[in-house]
Design a binder for these strands. Structure first.
Lengths: 351, 351
DNA sequence: CTGTTAGCGCCTTCAG
DNA sequence: CTGAAGGCGCTAACAG
């Protein structure tokens, strides 16, 4: 057997036209039961495994799949509980719609370009912060709908963002309200240069990533209102997917007088708790920690992490719907909400 | 603008044939630079975004993508560090080959069938233990290459398995060698009925899932040699992706005299450590724990988990290659290796 | 180098 | 309810 069987072969074998054979598979109600059975039987006999999706694809126009762009290692992506939650919401909607999810993963820039150009999908979701701009550029070129998540894509593209600045301000206000004045910040990447470690005021002000920039601005808002000079606040920068504990350690070393840490993500916050606990500090009494995101792990941590909750799953659902329903470009801003748990308390000195 | 631009339009506009236009995009070295530029310029002017992958697909025959079948929630799948590692190896090979990864996720049986029938992929990887048989059936019907991972798919299909029985035997021998006699087992699912909790000898003997069955047989081999009657050994059954801590707790409650636990996976082993530590037991002195898999978390646990290491990442790579290289069906059995860490020690009574 | 041509496998009018 | 025919967009083989 050399040539693969196709619908035409089955039709011939069953003595019907190709159109009828097609209907036998795809719209059985249009074909007399007797004929349909004959077609199906011939198909089975010939080893035909049903209409080839590729043919259908070309004809139909719609692919019914959405591509999720993941730069770097898949492990880094899925090690982050935030991404897992996001994908959960996304896949939920895709499942309901009978749509597939393609991981457009690529190690380097060149591979990413090719993947994005050739992926068989109805649209893209670009959600990784690293290289976001370039990926968005690529996605735009492909002329397919895409949604930028936690990334700014301009007014002619769809995006989903959070009330980052407001949320950050409220997180900082929570600590200030508890009496903290020696606050440090563990931040996500500010820009695309692989830097980790201490952040100078100049670097802070030149922040390029929107989420990081806005959250830092939010902290600054609160600090200013409380008379704290953010230029004097220790800030350390870390990747979310790696180096978190290392940078938490450096921050704790560099600023021993700190009584509270503002973390730009729960992953960073949890790493801070772990590091602090590991060196014998009591959280929250020696050190308060506030995260951002409210991933499931936050509530299960010891102590449970106070954090700024965002609707991650809903975000995933929304992103999927925006693609699948081919919505016109829109910029959505989702609300956040402070969830107070056990990782924050007044500073010990104050009691 | 109503009709989308296609290659033919660009060719006409540039005053070249369609074939040349195609070459300008796909095999630039075959086209004089001048002409190629004209084509590219016309394409840009018309807003043509490069050859549509769907056309190429139909023509080429090869899709260059592999489908990973994931039953149930995506979260369950990716919450398991084992699956994350596996996907890492898989995606590594796919990246190198410029191939994509499609998640064939489906909540229920009907959706799974449709997804598998219509996924645009070169082959499947079936790796979830639940519903494995039915999924394999579906995949076979599609007449595409597929690889069953940790699942038996028969001699005419590809599969990757481990030395499960041997590995389990050695794990048990390790504990026995340390002097343990009161050993309990925390097992993965034995069959497809959603049962968790205590396992009777009858149920144990009727194990349907190959991995579980073989590992239990391995334990039994070691027990028999040491004069331990496996029918008297407390065995509790748990899902890997949920309920692990709950069942670890039940096991510890039901068999308080236990000095060591054989866990069929690291996830179960880590849950056991956590549960034991939580109730004030010292691991390994009050309770030794041996896992299976050696996921990254195992080495980082407190205490680090003694476990039977398997080459997970390699497994992922292998699975991807088997599809991408269109290898003839083969059944591969990968080796395992005991890694002794801090979670095992002689029972306290013996010292 | 460039142009021509023939499908890839399917679905969906449209006419019977 | 069934059959015939056109074309989805592209590429590869072959002929200039």
């Amino acid at each position: 057997m050399n040539r693969p069987i196709r619908l035409a072969d089955v039709a011939t074998a069953a003595g019907v036209s190709q159109g009828t054979a097609s209907n036998a598979f795809n719209r059985p109600e249009l074909v007399r039961a007797e004929i349909r059975e004959r077609v199906l039987k011939e198909a089975a006999r010939l080893g035909y495994s049903g209409p080839d999706p590729r043919g259908r694809l070309l004809r139909a126009g719609k692919v019914n799949a959405i591509g999720v762009v993941v730069m770097g290692r898949l492990t880094y992506f899925f090690n982050d509980p935030f991404n897992r939650e996001f994908m959960e919401g996304l896949s939920e909607v895709c499942d309901e719609a009978g749509a597939g999810v393609s991981l457009i993963s690529a190690a380097d820039q060149k591979a990413a370009a090719w993947s994005i150009e050739t992926a068989v999908v109805d649209g893209f979701i670009v959600q990784c912060i690293e290289d976001g701009d370039r990926l968005i550029e690529l996605a735009k070129r492909r002329k397919l709908p895409f949604v930028a998540v936690d990334l700014d894509a301009g007014p002619d593209a769809s995006s989903i963002r959070l009330e980052d600045r407001k949320g950050a301000r409220e997180a900082a206000e929570h600590l200030i309200g508890l009496g903290h004045r020696n606050i440090a910040i563990l931040t996500l990447e500010l820009r695309d240069d692989g830097h980790t470690g201490p952040v100078t005021p100049e670097r802070r002000q030149s922040a390029h990533y929107g989420v990081t920039r806005d959250r830092l601005l939010g902290y600054e808002d609160a600090f200013r209102a409380a008379g704290i000079d953010i230029d004097k606040v220790p800030i350390f920068e870390s990747f979310n997917d790696r180096s978190a504990e290392e940078q938490a350690a450096r921050l704790l070393d560099a600023a021993p007088q700190t009584t509270a840490v503002l973390a730009l993500s729960d992953v960073l916050g949890l790493a801070t708790i772990k590091e602090a606990t590991g060196r014998g500090l009591s959280v929250p009494h020696d050190l308060s920690v506030v995260g951002f995101d409210d991933v499931p792990e936050a509530a299960r941590a010891v102590p449970p992490l106070t954090t700024m909750a965002q609707p991650v799953i809903e975000k995933g659902r929304l992103a999927a719907r925006m693609i699948l329903e081919r919505r016109a470009p829109q910029q959505i801003v989702l609300p956040v909400k402070l969830v107070i748990r056990g990782s924050t308390a007044p500073p010990r000195g104050r009691r």
